[in-house]
Design a protein around this nucleic acid. Sequence first.
DNA 1: CGGTACGTTGAGTCATATCAACCATAGTGG
DNA 2: CCACTATGGTTGATATGACTCAACGTACCG
Lengths: 233, 233
Amino acid sequence: MPIHDDQITCDSCFIRSHSLFRHLTDEEFQHISLNKITESYKRGSIIYQEGNRMKGFFCVHSGIIKIYKTGFDGKEQIIRFAKTGDIIGYRSVLNNEPACTTSEVIADCVVCHISSNTLFNLVKNNGNFALELMQLTCVELGEANSYITDIAQKTVRERLAEVLLHLKDEFKIDSAGYLNILLTREELANIVGTATESVIRLLSEFKQDQLIAVNGRKIKILDEQGLHRISNL
Amino acid sequence: MPIHDDQITCDSCFIRSHSLFRHLTDEEFQHISLNKITESYKRGSIIYQEGNRMKGFFCVHSGIIKIYKTGFDGKEQIIRFAKTGDIIGYRSVLNNEPACTTSEVIADCVVCHISSNTLFNLVKNNGNFALELMQLTCVELGEANSYITDIAQKTVRERLAEVLLHLKDEFKIDSAGYLNILLTREELANIVGTATESVIRLLSEFKQDQLIAVNGRKIKILDEQGLHRISNL
DNA sequence: CGGTACGTTGAGTCATATCAACCATAGTGG
DNA sequence: CCACTATGGTTGATATGACTCAACGTACCG
C-alpha cells in the first residue's frame, strides 16, 4: 500500500530542528536517519488500524491524516488530525498495546516510520526528549479533556462553530481565505459528534448569517468574532 | 485548609513499591522522603483549582478525589477520579501551565505534595521513571479518547450503565455489595454529562429492571451482564 | 425551628436524530 | 458514448431523547 520514497533525508528535513527531534544527539540523529523508512500514502490509505500491533511510530513529513476511533455502531469519531511535524502511533507503542485508533490519509502524505526500539531508547536515555514527548502527550490530554467537557455540555451548533475555528487555527487559510483542509460533511459530523444532516443544516445557517462562505468542500470563515460568540469559548 | 500530618513516612508507604515510584534510586527516594509535604483534606476541600499555578504535584495516600473541568455555564464535568496510589496535577506542572482542572475531595484524604523541581529532575534523569510516567499519561489519553467517542455517540442511558460498571471496576464493592464510592446524583450526572433529573430517572428505571439496588447514595450492581448489554461496551 | 442541600416527580419544550426522497458528480464497464 | 453505480450533498417531515422549569418531599444541621 505505501509507496517507498527514500529521497527524503533527515539531514534536510526541517522537522529535525523543531519539536522533539531538536533534542537528539548526533548519534541518536544518525541512528534515526539510517533506520527510518519513508513512505508515501494517497488519500484514503490507512496507515494503521484499530487493533494493529505497532512496530513503531510515524512522523508526518507532509500531508494530513485523520485519527479516529470506531464507535459501537461503526460510526467513526475523529479524535484529532496530524500534519507536518506531528507524530502518530507513539501512544500504542509506548504502552505495548494494539492501536486503539485508526489513521487514514485525507491529504496525500509522506511519513517516516521509526521503530519501537528507537523510541524506547530515546525515552530512556535522553531526558530532554522524554520531557518534550511527555509535554506533547500532556497537551493532547488537556485538549482531550476540554473536548470531553465541550461534547458533554455544548450544543451541536456551538461545537460546530468551535471546530471551524480550531480548523482555522490548525491548518490556516490559503490566499483566497479558504481553510487549508478539505473535509466531507460526514467527516465534519464525525469531529463534532453529530449527524451529517445536522452539519449540513448548520453550515447553511452559518452561511445565511454571513459567518462563513462555502464552495463545495472549501470553507471560508467570514466572521471569526461571530463564530466565537456562538461557540462560547 | 489542609491539615499537616507528618506521621506518614515514605519508608512505610506501600505506594513506594507500586507504580512510578518503584523505579527510584535510593538517593531519589531519600530526596522525596525528606522534601515531600503530607497534607490531610476533608470532604469538600479543594486541593487545587482551575487557573492555579502549580508548585508541584500530589500523590494520593488515601481517600478519593474528583477531578473536573468547569464548563461555560459553570457546570462541572468530571474527568476522572484519583484514589490511593494515583498522582494528580502533574500534567500542569510538566507543561508549565496553570491548572486546567479542579481537584475536590469527595472522601477524606491524605496526599503528599512533591515539588515541581523534583518531578522535572526525575523525568530528565531517570529513564525508567520517565517511561512509566509517560505510559501512565498515555493510558489516561487513551481513556479520554474512548470517552469522547462514547459521549459523542452513545445515549445517556448507555453512558450511565457504562459509568456504573467503571465505578465498580475502579473502586470495587464492599462486603454488602455496594460500590466503594458515594456520589450525589448531581456528581453522577457530571460524569455522564447529563442533567441531574435524567440520572435520577434512569437510576429508577435500572432499579425497576433489577439491574441495580439503591440505598441513598449507596449503589449496588445486581446484574452486571444486563448493564453491559445496555452500555454496548 | 428555619435553613440549606439533596432527591424526586411531572409537564412541556426543543434540539437533534432518523428516515426518506432526490439531485449532482464522477468514475466504470460494456 | 451511454447506461450504471457509487458517493456525497441537500432538503423535508417526523419522532423522540433529553433538558428545563417548577413544585414538593426529605433529611440533616446549627
